[in-house]
Amino acid sequence: MNKLFGGLGIGHSCSVQLEFRRSGGGGVPTAAVKSTRSASRRDETEDLPVYRSKDTVEGEVKITPIPGKRVDHAGIRVQLVGEIELASERGYPHEFLSLVRDLAPPGDLPSQQAYSFSFDNVEMQHDSYLGLKVRLRYLLRVTVARGLGQSTVKDFPFWVRNHSPAPPRGEPIKMEVGIEDCLHIEFEYDSPAFHLDDVVIGRIFFLLVRVKIKHMELEIKRRESVGAGAAARSESDTVAKYEIMDGAPARGEVIPIRLFLAPYDLSPSVDSVHNRFSVKYFLNLVLVDEEDRRYFKQQEITLYRAEEGAGDGAAKGGAARLPRGLVAALPEAPPPNPVAAA
């Protein structure tokens, strides 16, 4: 009830509004992110202000008493909170960041009052994250303190996205897998690490095909691990399904992979954030045969958020840029392993 009616101030003596601002004037950049309201459907989005670490978070809070009422309060303050909330500990988030600015001393508010605030160079090293069993979020919490149980508290979420430098490119992922006398493939992805707007380039060599394959797809899987040690729990979900082959290949065929990551809701891979959770991503290669049996192999990849305009994005501005990932030519299939083929 508090959340639903809080904005309108019903049940409270005043309404609270907050506007994010930038010191130079103008609005704060926003991004459409999955709605944080737990009741809403997964594919609904809301626009939230976006910050990154070391940004200054500033703005203005307006307190408006209900017309005809005065507001007595024990002080008004705004808090910048960073918290990790696990599904198993709902309602008891772990706060890893908490900064406070007092806006007004205890007193009496006869009419609307506006207060500016500013948190300078806030260290927000973790990205906002909304997963299945865990979320990491940032918010500004405005509290109009009153007597016991009478305080008005309102949260104003915002989103944090940090850019990281590209990790060393790393060796391409290459792997030969198979089921003896049944299916042997070799696949390769050009890199083990991708930024969120990257293209996964790769190819699959069919060395031996004795099953009737119907199609093949590449999945992006996300695995959340929550907790630590013996209490650790993992939860996986499939973020993307991308068909890369239709029909049954013959031995010797080489199938190209080119998967654009941009359309999917991905986040950077993180490891052991405050010992509370990790998020890992995997490319899962799935072959489905005519009896709907699935043959798959997953490989972990590292996702990171690249600096805007860095990396491949650099070319994006140019008028004459070419599409990314154009195939020069697929290599011939390597000679099949005689032992495997036998």
Binding site: D246, G247, A248, A250, E253, P256, V327, L330
Partner: peptide
Amino acid sequence: RQAPAKLILRDVAELCRGVQHPTRG
């Protein structure tokens, strides 16, 4: 004529390898 013909030609021809089903391919 904003892209070199041969690049696009090569690209589409190679990507079409994904369809291995005889009729559809």
